[in-house]
């Protein structure tokens, strides 16, 4: 009996889709646009997250040594810093290397030319990755490095990391808001498309009920069209995302490779894409369910 009913439901559902016309097309396109926007933002967020993680992992604390510390003294200070907990690795930079880095940071370093500055030896400290996530641990490490004999001053771009963290949180919030907004839009669009289908098929539904169709028999094909709209929209949106990504990935990848080394503009992982398709289906069910609920609530034909 279940097989017989299922085949009837699929048959009537397919007929609904065939006769869906403009509302169905509109619903699929709108769903695709919405889910494309959502996944495009998701792709940006995903890559920004990867980027910020890479940045924070590579950000070093810089210990400027006293001016009277020479190369051998710098190596001793490096060895002492290396023993501190939370330190991953340390490298010593000569005053000339420091000057080159300073010029680069000042976009050519015209201000440094001929100033006769004496640069100190520097120890660059890369903290352990676990420290990146904790501002308190970072601050404690900076204090500990500053307490090592021979260290004049410690610089660590904790503020920049905090700003990146805040930006990432803001993007997560915006992404969540966008996801809820788009989900609502998809639900409303699918619901209205199914509502129009119900109006178009009003006589057919009345005849089905007249010959004894249960609510489930009437509702199932409509729910099926809702699922089809949601999944269709999601697949169309992902197709558009794929096209957009393949067009942009090379350009963005080249831009990133100049500054960020091996980083590339990655697509969303397959499990997220699968989740989008399933989510599209769920939104379709919710949208269709709203219209079907209204139809059945209206009572007997």
């Amino acid at each position: 009996m279940i097989v017989a009913v299922s085949s009837s439901v699929i048959k009537h559902g397919l007929r609904s889709l065939r006769h869906g016309g403009l509302p169905l097309f509109f619903a699929v396109v709108m769903s695709a646009l919405g889910l494309f926007s959502m996944t495009a933002f998701g792709t940006l967020l995903w890559n920004f997250r990867t980027l910020s993680s890479a940045v924070s992992e590579s950000v070093a604390a810089v210990a400027f040594l006293d001016l009277d510390v020479d190369g051998a003294g710098a190596q001793e200070v490096r060895a002492r810093i290396q023993l501190l907990p939370g330190v991953d690795r340390c490298t010593v930079m000569t005053p000339d290397e420091v000057l080159v880095r300073a010029r680069r940071g000042l976009r050519g370093g015209a201000a440094l030319e001929g100033a006769g500055l004496q640069m100190p030896w520097v120890v660059e400290v890369i903290p352990r990755v676990t420290l990146q996530d904790s501002p308190e641990a970072r601050a404690a490490l900076v204090t500990a490095i500053g307490g090592v004999a021979g260290v004049d001053e410690v610089a660590h771009p904790g503020g920049e990391l905090a700003r990146v963290d805040a930006l990432l949180r803001l993007m997560y919030g915006a992404g969540g808001f966008l996801a809820v907004l788009i989900a609502l839009v998809v639900v409303v669009v699918v619901s209205n498309a199914v509502r129009l289908m119900v109006l178009v098929r009003k006589d057919e539904i009345a005849i089905q009920k007249l010959v004894g169709a249960s609510d489930a028999f009437v509702a199932a094909p409509l729910m099926l069209t809702g699922i089809a709209q949601g999944i269709g929209g999601a697949l169309l949106g992902l197709l558009a995302l794929g096209v957009a990504h393949s067009s942009l990935a090379r350009v963005v990848g080249v831009a990133l490779s100049g500054t960020m080394g091996a980083l590339a503009f990655e697509p969303l992982p397959p499990w997220v894409l699968a989740l989008v398709v399933v989510g599209g289906g769920v939104l379709g069910v919710v949208g269709a369910g709203l219209s079907v609920w209204r139809l059945l609530r209206e009572g007997r034909p």
């Binding site: 009996m1 017989a4 009913v5 085949s7 009837s8 005849i207 089905q208 010959v211 004894g212 028999f217």
Partner: peptide, 14 residues
Amino acid sequence: ALALEVQGRRRDDI
């Protein structure tokens, strides 16, 4: 056949 389909009858019976 619609009148029998809504009752969930088997295809060959319908």
